[in-house]
Amino acid sequence: MAFLRPQSREELLNAIHEHPGYIMVAGATDVWPKIRRGAIKDADFIDLTAMPRLEPYCDAQGALHLPGSITAGRIAAGGDKMCKKWPLLVEGARHVGSPQIRNRATIAGNICTASPCADMTTGLTPYNPEVKLSSLAGSRQLPLREFLTGPGRTARAADEWLEEVILPLPPEGVFSKFCKTGRRNALIIAVASMALNILIKKGKIEHIALAFGSVAPTVLRAQKVEEFLLGKELSAAIIEEAAAIAYNEVKPINDQRATAEYRRQVCRDFLAAALEEAAQ
């Protein structure tokens, strides 16, 4: 078994180019449970934790650039600007695992694991984020929704590294709501979760971005609900109709955590409650 520890971006890109079959690891909070249950066997690793620690920054357009190596704990601690402008991201990070897990787990790991219930990914989705993938051949940027192709599957090539997550600045005055339900608070895989951004101007919905977690093969952008609501005025009847569309748009499964029917009802009720709150 090999365990490589590149010390710089250049060393890393060379390492993944030479060894595309090696597993990239940072917080290892997902890798170790997989090793333990035999889902990862006789693997070689490229460790990302010896690389220089990078800080998030905002570019000239106001978009937030998060290094892939940033931990859920760092995001959850927020910092004023992050809490104010991207509260769903911060809320999502706060729901990850436990303090022990948040101190290690990275945003790149949360995204690349491509779990339909990833809390940070659900929180990110309404911001239309992009991921920056880098290899020796150069870098490319891809919308997150195109990057996530199925449960545990992404558009990442074997020699690519998720270097950055880029979140555009949401419209001024947007109302945000993150909801998650599970059997207990800590360390729980969501039964269903929702992240909503909505902007109402002069009574009309001017902007809406809605994501659901744990109710489809990937974190789901609820486009039918968005199309229905855009430009409308919120009333009891409209809220009820939007919630019914959400009920039908999500594609949940039955598993050991909940039934598909229960998950549909949770999504419907989350959305109805959030819209009522937004309308006030």
């Binding site: 520890r5 290892a28 909070t29 170790w32 449970p33 333990r36 436990s98 022990q100 897990i101």
Partner: peptide, 24 residues
Amino acid sequence: GGECGACTVALNGEIICSCCAFTQ
């Protein structure tokens, strides 16, 4: 598996599960 916290240690002042970290 990183869930129970029995193996908790503080690493550079932050608590982690030592069952979910490589020694290197």
